[in-house]
Amino acid sequence: MPPRKRPPPPAKAPEAPPETKPKISPPAKPIAAAPPPPKAVLSDTVLAALSQHERPIYKLVFAGGDKGMSQTEIRIKTGMPTSTLTKHLRGLTSKGVLKVVNSVHKRAEKIYMDVRIDPSPEITGGTWYRNGQLDSDAVASARRRCLDQIDKLGVATAESIHEGISRECSNLAYSTEQVRDILRTMALDREVEEVRSTGAGEFGDLRAGRVCYRRGGPVQGGMMERIPCGVCPRIDECSPDGVISPSTCVYYKKWLQMDF
């Protein structure tokens, strides 16, 4: 059996990005998204002002709701030529009926949406994104506040951490779900440790089985990361009698010198 070919490496900036964004669960619930008005009422009022070519375009975009619809998708569904579609979309935008939204995951894609609908977190990226860019400062600030609460409480649930942050910084509008997201990321980073309450001892105030967070310990690595071989970029070419060998290794020489 011939060896299976390795799949091609993923392109960092694909020239032909996927036409439709994959559906994934939003990291946080939408913040008071305005409910869309009744379709019949909207159709009667707005559709009357549109030309016969603009009307099906608007219906398609409206059907997309808070996820919108990309230009490519509209073209495929309506069957219009690109130049015609572009002209009509520009007209709809200038009339104030539609707006253009950029997706954080596919910046090359133009997504059209009804002006009165707020984009879903799937498009904007949620709370941690601002103008399509990840707001690193907001994330770092949220992590710091969560860690402060954990240091005060010792062992804490997401609810108690959220309660503490809300009490101390009433101007911040974190939701419990957002706090949970931050805590999950911090657990991945090993900054905090995710444990389950036993209902006794230091978990005495918490019901048994609840997910809790506490200060994480340091990651204990082995000797591999402290000798040159562990992080060597040439380890695959190293052999006892080869051109690259322990006896001729520059990393070993550097490592042994450093200890004097």
């Binding site: 204990q220 690595g221 082995g222």
Partner: peptide, 13 residues
């Protein structure tokens, strides 16, 4: 411990 050693090496590298 096994997972920690590999993950720690990934972080170092």
């Amino acid at each position: 411990s096994r997972n920690e050693e590999i993950e720690s090496l990934v972080r170092k590298k």
